[in-house]
């Protein structure tokens, strides 16, 4: 399969799992792969209908589903997070990012789940 075929399949599968889990019509409106000039790479899934409350209640399940999705795309699931629309509980995107050494430090400094008010970390593997 091509990369886009893999992503199409992964997007639909994750959306179905989230809908079954939460019982609400969550939409994953777009899945994008990205490669940044700094050296970071990964995927962003833009969401509609997913709220921070959903995440806090079902974090364990959502983390498991997202890890499976990311792994199926051969992306290291060492850093998984959601981005919130500032000042709201609306989740704008779910993200998997393989961090470059510079960006790693931005996230490694803090110890909590909210290094910035618009970011909620699902998984962060510290490096040696």
């Amino acid at each position: 399969m091509t990369i886009t075929q893999d992503m199409l399949k992964a997007r639909g599968a994750l959306e179905n799992k989230l809908r079954e889990l939460l019982g609400i019509p969550v939409f994953l409106i777009e899945m994008d792969a990205f490669a940044l000039p700094c050296g970071c790479g990964g995927i962003t899934i833009n969401t509609r209908g997913l709220q921070l409350d959903d995440l806090e209640v079902f974090e364990e399940h959502i983390l498991k589903y997202f890890t499976e999705t990311v792994t199926s795309l051969e992306i290291d699931p060492s850093f998984l997070f959601v981005r919130l629309i500032p000042g709201t509980s609306e989740i704008a995107s779910i993200n998997a990012r393989m961090l470059c050494s510079n960006c790693y430090m931005d996230f490694a400094r803090g110890s909590g789940k909210r290094p910035r008010p618009d970011i909620y970390i699902l998984r962060f593997d510290s490096r040696e």
Partner: peptide, 14 residues
Amino acid sequence: HVGHLEGLEDLLSG
């Protein structure tokens, strides 16, 4: 300051 207590704690401890 980014605007939440956690960020302020990080900032002022740094």
